[in-house]
Amino acid sequence: MIKLLPRYVLSFVLLVFLQVFILNNIQFSGYINPYIYVLFILVLPFETPKWFLLIIAFTLGLTIDLFSSTVGMHSSATVVMAFFRPYVLKVISPRDGYESETLPQLRYYGASWFIRYSVILILIHHFFLFYIEVFRFTHFFATFARAVLSSIFTIILVLISQYFYRKDTRR
């Protein structure tokens, strides 16, 4: 566990930088706004204590918030996502459970499992985030479309990132 720590710290910093300095400046046609930083929550080890999961999610969200001056918005969405992560993991677990020494990543459990896992959590996160952002139901379907389109882009980016991981984390 402890040997993973530097890698996670590095990926935390990397993801925050990527999100804040590159992706936050990208807005395709006013609808699409991918949030890649959720990848950090997705790939945390299975054994992470639940309470630690929530705290680290809050920290991550707050960091993003501080850079985009939307204090509380990303943090609440990320915490919701972290809250659902254990239940999602339980629901889509493989028949013989998760093996030790593995991480919830594409290379351990295959593309179909990882896509299911990430799609569910990313949709939860994005819907929560976008509805918190507009904070009203008057433009329900416009918000819905934004959430769906952004989720698709985030999912694509998350899947691409999995192939990066595969290459540079070979043991």
Binding site: W51, L54, F58, V71, G72, M73, S75, V79, P86
Partner: peptide
């Protein structure tokens, strides 16, 4: 139920931040 409690606590805190800063 510490997980649920902590979740609620952090969410309440987040929303407090949200309402106070935006």
């Amino acid at each position: 139920i510490h997980f649920l409690l902590l979740f609620i606590l952090i969410e309440v805190f987040s929303f407090t931040l949200l309402f106070n800063n935006n």
